[in-house]
Write a protein that binds this DNA or RNA. Structure first.
Lengths: 109, 109
DNA sequence: CAGGAATATTCCGTCAAGTGAATATTTAAA
DNA sequence: TTTAAATATTCACTTGACGGAATATTCCTG
């Protein structure tokens, strides 16, 4: 999970994947649309590629980059495990405070 | 989105929020469970707090940290906007390749 | 009010990541 | 086979983030 999150935790790369959300694009097109120099675009795409977030389709001397669904599905599944916190978090806090008080009472013995 | 992702993109902080998923905890408890020194725990919690991922409840000289649901909801909503890629991405690629070929044919004129 | 527990902050050193510029690589085309 | 286009890689530089150690702060308790 850290690898995916790290790869996504950068402004330019966020913009890149939001671009690719619409459709696959070549390096040059990405650099153009985001006002990036070509080497920077390639570097960011390499980070995304190493994290498995994009894949490459060579086509002549172009490289078409497109999103891979897996990391997004992984993230989604991971996030699911946090969904409980916006359902029953008040109960959790109550439980915890009660527990704390119990400990403190025990210490008084 | 970058702020949230950056805050989450670190192993120790991932572990912290996974701990807090169960219930709120104090700094000392978090440091204990994760084998972190207290200052490091405090620092990571500060990063999470600055990103709005956790909130603090002072209770005497303890600080109880708990997850805030909002950033997770935000992330979830953001991820939703990518769901299409694992539904109709093949069509997208087809479209794109057709488009590319059309451009190339035009260049031949 | 002195002492101790819990937590936060600061300082320092190190290392990873980002940018820019230059260059290498690959492929198509003349 | 030389040239040009598209992309990747390397190098040098700078900055930000992390860890460790020490210290400051806050609050409770005797």
């Amino acid at each position: 999970m850290e690898k995916i999150l790290s790869a996504l935790a950068e402004q330019n790369r966020i913009k890149i994947i939001e671009l690719l959300k619409t459709k696959p694009l070549t390096v040059g097109e990405i650099a153009d649309k985001l006002q990036l120099r070509q080497p920077q675009a390639s570097k960011h795409l390499k980070v995304l590629h190493d994290a498995g977030i994009v894949e490459v389709l060579p086509r002549a001397n172009r490289r078409i980059y497109k999103l891979r669904p897996e990391p997004f599905q992984d993230l989604d599944a991971w996030l699911d495990s946090f969904k409980s916190i916006w359902e029953d978090r008040l109960d959790q806090l109550d439980d915890y405070l009660n527990e704390l008080q119990k400990k403190e009472r025990n210490n008084d013995d």
